[in-house]
Design a protein around this nucleic acid. Sequence first.
DNA 1: AGCACTACTTGCAACGTTGCAAGCTCAGCA
DNA 2: TGCTGAGCTTGCAACGTTGCAAGTAGTGCT
Lengths: 338, 338
Amino acid sequence: MAATLREVAERAGVSVRTVSNVVNDFPQVAAETRAKVQRALDELGYQPNAVARTLRNGRSGLIALVLPELDVPYFAELTRAVIEQAAVAGYTVVVDQTDGDPVRERELVMRGSRAAMFDGLIFNPLALGDADLRNRPSSTPVVLLGERVVQGGLDHIMIDNVGAAELATRHLIDLGRQRIAAIGDQFDETRRTGQLRTQGYRAALQSAGREVIAELVRPVEFFHRADGAAAMAELLALPEPPDAVFCYNDLLALGALRTILSRGLRVPEDIALVGFDDIEDGRYSTPSLTTISPDKNQIAKNAVQLLLNRLDGDRSDPAEISAGYTLELRESTTGRPV
Amino acid sequence: MAATLREVAERAGVSVRTVSNVVNDFPQVAAETRAKVQRALDELGYQPNAVARTLRNGRSGLIALVLPELDVPYFAELTRAVIEQAAVAGYTVVVDQTDGDPVRERELVMRGSRAAMFDGLIFNPLALGDADLRNRPSSTPVVLLGERVVQGGLDHIMIDNVGAAELATRHLIDLGRQRIAAIGDQFDETRRTGQLRTQGYRAALQSAGREVIAELVRPVEFFHRADGAAAMAELLALPEPPDAVFCYNDLLALGALRTILSRGLRVPEDIALVGFDDIEDGRYSTPSLTTISPDKNQIAKNAVQLLLNRLDGDRSDPAEISAGYTLELRESTTGRPV
DNA sequence: AGCACTACTTGCAACGTTGCAAGCTCAGCA
DNA sequence: TGCTGAGCTTGCAACGTTGCAAGTAGTGCT
């Protein structure tokens, strides 16, 4: 097993170089020689050694997608889009999950040790920030996703969180809701998403002449269903519960929905809900979830394109791309179809 | 950037070998030399070249997890478990998505081209079967997951699909349901999961003295929410709709649930539902989903352990491990807590 | 017959790393 | 002074591949 060029060459009675020429389909090989070598290749079940090729050629054909959590549907769906885009260009994508652990992020992205097996990285950081990324010793090109980093000197794709959150909140205002809550605020400096969406939430309320009521803005540790369910329970325990909630992602909204329904309340009649991410779960929940839908395909396409440009030697200034989004109206705010 | 040992050696005025000794913390280096070299390392921002190391050492420290679909929550959750297990042993896991495409599966698993970058593979095949896998030319160890392959001559971890499906169906029988349907049957030879679960479904009905009604066993193309929703619509359109449905995975069940609720029917009062996989979505749906819960941690642990054994040179006969499962009772069959 | 040219094949070196064994320097001791 | 050995450093070779340039043989032309 794991025959090498040399072993094949010995068996076929030709030089290593000639075997390589056959393997790589070089035209300058006599038909007879080619047949002889091919037979030896088949007999030994030769498979080229990818590591040696990579060392020699400087290209592995592998791109790593480094994400916080794969079991968060948004990331799983984004992954699909990235894989499709990269396949078009002949690249294989492998995914790595960091859990936002700074140690793992650093190991994968900063130290060449593991990262250098890949031609490039698409990285959604949670722990690492501007400072870390600026003095990255490795020269493997990186494209950043998400809002964690503001000024990293690297290509960067994000969405306008403030604007999107404002749009979601304004939708609830337009529905005539009076006490609009928010679930997903975050204080930790490594979690900027929550802060930005709170900004948008406040902006929408203020520009509608509404007051921002502190107790209606609930912080969470993670953007998971359990956090949404817990935060919603707190909101329902208030003397004056909300009649609408903007959840900073769909998982929070699905958790909140579960809590609301389990109390016998109705959505949207008693409480309207808006989520963020447009994951598939939200289209099949009952009621289905009104949500901000980021253009995942655009994000993936841009990320892969920027990375490929860098691999082709593009030395231009880092790009900063803001991907599009729309508000998808569904039953959790519009009510069930009759 | 991307300084090499040689460049560091020149700068420090020592040999390449000495720099390597410093980098690898060999004891036999004079303190003064070490300091000098360290300075050069820092100044040049040296990072070891992982590809060259792998070529030299024959180990990359990377394991590939090759799965059909990452945006199927079961796989995403399994991935988390595998990553955790592998991390214990110092291995990094990268995930690759095949979509069950035979070309991609072959490229990743059969041809060494891409696979050989990894020390081992954990592979859940859809397209490749026994015949393909038996004459795999690559010598990278592989552990198989799932039911696609029966006799591949490779380590293999599965669950007892027939028994689990029987348990799920019997639960519905025990609830006194009269017309128990099944969603998820499959005919394609590459999709054995559906066939096995149908076997279990039939076995349960027969051992309870029930007839198997053909029109109540609905086939699907994929195990996705949309397929479940469509199949449920067909069932509801029957002259005598079912009063219980065993869905072959939770996504199908969630799709079916959506259809049922959208018709104004109640779960479980009108129709009881059982799923399979125990994904997080099913715990937060309303009603929450009774489901077969495969022991994902056991699957992951065994898979990683078997693979590591092979990497350590274990040459024993391929293992065939059946992972455990339980039936998780939730609201979709037991009703809401009052 | 001699030469040029085509058609094919080959050896060398290098990608960046590390195991091995040999090398050097110097202190300590007889 | 010469020898031993400890302490440290080094050169060589190899992992498996491919670019480069040079090599060989054979054909056709003059």
